[in-house]
Design a protein around this nucleic acid. Structure first.
Lengths: 183, 183
DNA sequence: GGTTGCATGTAAATGGTTACATGATTGT
DNA sequence: ACAATCATGTAACCATTTACATGCAACC
């Protein structure tokens, strides 16, 4: 899914400015499976506007810069439905964290412990924040609740696995370090 | 992590050709948290070679095209350790599957069911294949086992969540479709 | 006085994918 | 015959990231 489709999706939940769309990608409900920066969102919105898939209304604001609020047009909604009706491509995950852990034997036990602790903490606080987010709203969007719950389940599984196995891993690294010193 | 670092990581497990590195990314132990195609691997290996981080030996093969086998040099190993000692960037996940599910209310119950079934099946077969992969080997690389186990735990959590909640989601979509027809 | 948040945008640079080019062998 | 596997590489294309450019308001 390119940024244009992501914007269509964000706008299907209601009109928004580029700035607000960015926030949805960063902190909002999309945060956990897609991202985009200003440099791709603003050009995407302009192209969508030219193609007639969104409409744009300038809004003057008091003590704030002007806002351009975009809304999905009927053909925009159609384009979104069309895009999500194609067979999905494979998920792509790029995790420096897992790459680094994979080579844990090249790091010190301290480094590995730091990595694991930081990550677990991040998962725990993120899950707590996600659980607060009243997703009980939007009864007309069951997909949102499903994806939200799936995200929570995933992050909890991740944190649990790390907590259950971290001592094992760190212990082995510690042993290897001792042998290296002994030799 | 750019493709150069990925290649250094792959070569740290033993000498390999570009073709073999690609296989490691696709089917091997890296598959679940990074990927790269020929178009990025071959140029990366050439650059690494020029920088002296890997060395290259041409191998003539019987009834096969020639192979260029790359090995990590000492400075290459250092560069790898250096790269994995930096603080990791945030994981990036891009999942068309989750994006589509998020908008389940724009799809038919049949489409959603197909999406979920296909995905669960993929997770189940992938987990089965991963469990076969005897990761009991490589006692000198505990990180590999850890990451391998984490991948299995994640995929299982994913499949379990979908199985536990799919009927809920599909039921709601079905209800909405009926209401839409009734109106 | 400096940082953060609001708000939009452009341009250059990066990095990666896709398509192309080549060619032998093995299996259906 | 045709497709798949092994094997390497280049070039055009694409998308995204990053840096730059601007400016006001609120907070510390």
């Amino acid at each position: 899914m390119d940024v244009k489709t992501l914007c269509l999706g964000a706008l299907s939940r209601g009109p928004a400015s580029g700035y607000e769309i960015k926030k949805q990608f960063q902190e909002g409900p999309f945060a956990h499976f897609h991202d985009a920066g200003f440099g791709s969102i603003y050009p995407a919105l302009n192209k969508l506007n030219q193609a007639g898939l969104v409409s744009c209304t300038a809004m003057e604001q008091d003590k704030r810069p002007d806002k351009k609020v975009y809304s999905l047009t009927p053909s925009g909604r159609l384009a979104l439905v069309n895009a999500i009706s194609q067979a999905p491509g494979a998920d792509s995950v790029r995790s420096d964290f897992l790459f680094m852990l994979f080579f844990a034997h090249l790091l010190s036990a301290r480094q590995v412990e730091g990595l694991l602790s930081d990550r677990v903490e991040w998962y725990r606080t993120t899950v707590a924040r996600m659980k607060e987010t009243a997703c009980a709203s939007a009864p007309e969007r069951p997909g949102e609740r499903f994806v939200h719950g799936l995200g929570i389940a995933l992050y909890e599984a991740m944190a649990d696995y790390i907590d259950d196995h971290r001592h094992e891993l760190v212990g082995e690294i510690l042993l290897m370090d001792q042998k290296a010193v002994a030799s």
